[in-house]
Amino acid sequence: MSVREEFDAWAAEGKDRGMEDRHWHTAKHVLARMPVEPGDTVLDLGTGSGYALRALRDTNDAGPCYGLDGSPEMLRNARDYTDDDGIGFLRGDFDALPFATDSIDHVFSMEAFYYASDPPHTLEEITRVLRPGGTAHIAVNYYEENVHSHEWQDFIDIEMTRWSGPEYREAFREAGLAVAAQDTIPDREVEIPPADAFPTDEFETREAMVKRYRELGTLLTVGVATE
């Protein structure tokens, strides 16, 4: 199945808004850390419902914001959710970014990077489009240390890349991004039912669910283009 088929179906089922709700718990902390100044140009890779760009326009007075996605249905919805002239959407692929060299101040990506078919090359593309000193904030819930995420691959036909924290740092550096910071951002908002509700479909024990959300959460790697 292609990215288009998979994610068009998700968008049609309203999963775009569902992801926005769930990802917002940690994505908002990522967005809050980004040093976006008024007028800065921001690119959101795998924008889904486009919530990140709407938030950065509202809170940071960001300049032109672009959301790239491979799924036309996602883009159609995202376009419907805003009438802000400063936000534009376009269809493209992570491995062939249609942006000029040094044209972007900040790249954001939430729960999307690992779908790239050639992630090291995607990082090179990010380095290329960022101006020197520009930042990349790449956030994922699917990563090696988050053992609870490993089974996600079973539910999707697109091959997913499961790096560890150190592997993300190494790959950033290989692509020419200085690693400025890395950590995991816990999800403190998802509701965790009382112990006697377990096992659930997803978690054997309450402890496992606590570890997944309150402890592991979202892995954020922050890179800076140095030249």
């Binding site: 292609s2 288009r4 179906a9 036309p72 376009l90 062939a96 249609p98």
Partner: peptide
């Protein structure tokens, strides 16, 4: 199309409906 430029590399265009 529909206000959205399609800048996928041509070999990735899958124009058949999903």
């Amino acid at each position: 199309e529909d206000g959205i430029p399609n800048l996928l590399p041509p070999d990735m265009r899958d124009e058949a409906p999903a």
